[in-house]
Nucleic acid binder design. Structure first.
Lengths: 229, 229
DNA sequence: TGCGATATTTCAATTCTGTGTCAGATTTGT
DNA sequence: ACAAATCTGACACAGAATTGAAATATCGCA
């Protein structure tokens, strides 16, 4: 859970293998796909934390893959770094507009791509990059697996930990019970939606510290959100 | 609060002016600083929403500015895009490692920088990238499910939320009760038209803030419309 | 003024959330 | 491996908030 999952979409086998090797030795979990349709399937079955997407691949074009990833609910928010040819400014701009998060122009050094990947992850999912996340007076250390509030350690169970982590990664945003089930329990979990309430309650109880207001906002008929103080 | 504030740190006057002009015409609020110390002062006095930082400026180096911005609590989380020379891969990697969020290599087109800025803002502060709906002094954040007026949070129920959202998506236009029932309650709802009046009343009450006039216009024998102040 | 239309108040029904509890599953410590 | 401790998911009921309708008061205009 701590090793970020990458999906590399690249049809140049040599490059793909080089990158795969490099990233795996840096502690990433890498899957490779050589064409767009295949990539879409892999992505929606088991959403990666980040996609590295060659703009020029056989079959479905990069821009199309990008668009489809964005459209699929499961992968809509997975960051995408695209690989483009050096001079194709139009492609780059179009890519960013289509929803890519970043690009790098070929040729590039693996080291530079690594830096970019970790920069994007740090931005989007700080916890995956091993950084502590802060939200209001809450602080979460993903490496130590601990959460504190106003300096005090919180006593918190596994599910509640995943829940607060998810909330802290997306503060202010409202999530429906079903979105929370997908994000925290895993897609396709057959769990009662009302059970989310119970865990919200447990979480609230766990993060209650004297004289602090409850940072979890109930949005009636919509879900819950973390409202950092 | 709706126009993103940029701080541009660039000592090439010609380039700075070009960018300033371009960004201002895109609705950004731009301040320019030609050296690092000055930039630090401006940034900590009035934190911008994003910093564009030339890596090669006189005096304090870009990397140092970046580091200091990250260290100052006020600016620690302001995203930074750096401008680097084309071939300075080391700088780029170092920059990303130091905490820059992104870079762009010179020469670049203003259009490309614009795309990057808006991509970063969208990621970091969705509200700033125009993902909120505004109408007069009302602002609605669909992601957070909140509505505010003159900065004050409104306490609003589910139906009233859907109602005001619909109005804000179609300002000034008059809707009959039956159109509102279709749009807000869903087509085929078997609800009395008179009930719309009641919800309008509740909405009016919910968005009433001291010294503000009622933005919902009653159009006799036709329906209601939102008349942004 | 009188009529049609809208505003406001009130209330019961309904929907949704909060919470205590329980049995089974899982983890922990020995 | 065993027992204790913890964690999970489900359920049920109480309580809170929301909703729609009906009744009554006001308003706007010919």
């Amino acid at each position: 859970m701590s090793t970020p999952k990458l999906l590399l979409v690249e049809d140049d086998t040599a490059l793909a293998e080089l990158l795969e090797y490099r990233f795996e030795s840096e502690g990433y979990d890498v899957r490779v796909s050589a064409d767009g349709d295949d990539a879409m399937m892999m992505a929606s079955e088991d959403p990666p934390d980040l996609v590295i997407l060659d703009w020029m691949i056989e079959g479905t074009s990069g821009i199309e893959v990008c668009r489809r990833l964005r459209r699929d609910k499961v992968t809509a928010h997975v960051p995408i770094i695209m690989l483009t040819a050096r001079e194709a400014e139009d492609d780059r701009v179009r890519g960013l507009e289509t929803g890519a998060d970043d690009y790098i122009t070929k040729p590039f050094s693996p080291r530079e791509l690594l830096a970019r990947v970790s920069a994007v992850l740090r931005r989007v999912r700080p916890a995956l990059a091993g950084e502590t996340i802060e939200a209001g007076d809450l602080r979460l250390d993903p490496v130590a697996h601990r959460v504190e509030r106003r300096g005090r350690q919180l006593q918190i169970g596994p599910t509640e930990y995943r829940l607060i982590k998810f909330f802290m990664e997306h503060p202010r945003r409202v999530f429906s019970r079903s979105q929370l089930l997908d994000a925290v329990w895993g897609t396709g979990s057959e769990i009662e939606e009302r059970t989310v309430d119970v865990h919200i309650r447990r979480l609230r109880k766990a993060i209650a510290v004297e004289n602090t207001r409850d940072p979890i906002r109930t949005v009636r008929s919509a879900g819950y959100a973390l409202e950092p103080v």
